[in-house]
């Protein structure tokens, strides 16, 4: 049987962590794009659009990410669509994060005083001008910190993709544990790498929150 040094294990985990990072980035970018669209639907004045967006958000906020992964991975296969673990993980995480991001952003927009809209309307600004010049610049400032904070949830959420056979950090840890029978060491390292990925994001989130709150 092969002997693994600590360094071998760590190196293998770091290599696998690449895929955790890539999957997180895809989930974040995909989630942000869909989430932005959902945000505008949620704040629109058309009841039908608001309902559709609300249903989507409630659905993905109200079910476990693991079930969403299973449904995408196994469900689409049942329908005859062949999905790789990669596609399934990226898709499920996009659906999941878009729901949460849109909810965060809707909250940021609606937290602005109603008077901002009223004053803008009285000055004759159109909906898009109000969005572009008044609402979004202010909402963006409020949104940065919670958005970066949520990215930590996405990074940790990618761990679930290991269950459908996607080889990222957690899956690599499981495999190495099966080979070394040293769960404490292996999963200790896995946890450490997750922490190294997430901690800077948490710090950044808190830093941004302080920084952006100083000037109006």
């Amino acid at each position: 049987m092969n002997e693994f040094t600590n360094w071998d294990i760590f190196q293998a985990l770091i290599l696998a962590a690449r895929w955790t990072v890539v999957l997180s980035l895809i989930a974040f970018l995909g989630g942000a794009s869909v989430g932005l669209l959902l945000t505008f639907l949620q704040i629109s004045s058309r009841t039908a659009l608001v309902r559709i967006a609300r249903f989507y958000v409630e659905l993905f906020q109200g079910t476990p990410l693991l079930m969403q992964l299973f449904l995408v991975f196994f469900g689409l296969s049942l329908l005859g669509i062949d999905v790789s673990p990669w596609t399934a993980a990226a898709l499920a995480l996009t659906l999941f994060s878009s729901a949460f991001l849109s909810e965060i952003w809707r909250g940021c927009i609606e937290s602005l005083p109603k008077g901002q809209w009223e004053a803008s309307r009285c000055l004759g600004l159109s909906y898009f001008e109000i969005m572009r010049h008044i609402i979004l610049p202010q909402a963006l400032k409020v949104a940065v910190a919670p958005t970066v904070g949520f990215s930590v949830q996405i990074v940790k959420g990618t761990a679930l993709a290991s269950i459908i056979g996607f080889v990222e950090l957690t899956k690599a840890g499981t495999m190495l544990n099966n080979a070394t029978f040293e769960p404490f060491k292996v999963f200790g390292m896995v946890a450490l790498i997750y922490f190294l990925l997430c901690y800077p994001l948490s710090v950044a989130s808190r830093h941004l929150e302080r920084k952006l709150n100083v000037t109006g």
Partner: peptide, 17 residues
């Protein structure tokens, strides 16, 4: 109408940014 009617509010509603 905004070119004919202006409005000032109790809570100022200036744009803080």
């Amino acid at each position: 109408l905004s070119k004919s009617v202006g409005m000032v509010f109790q809570s100022f509603n200036l744009f803080p940014h």
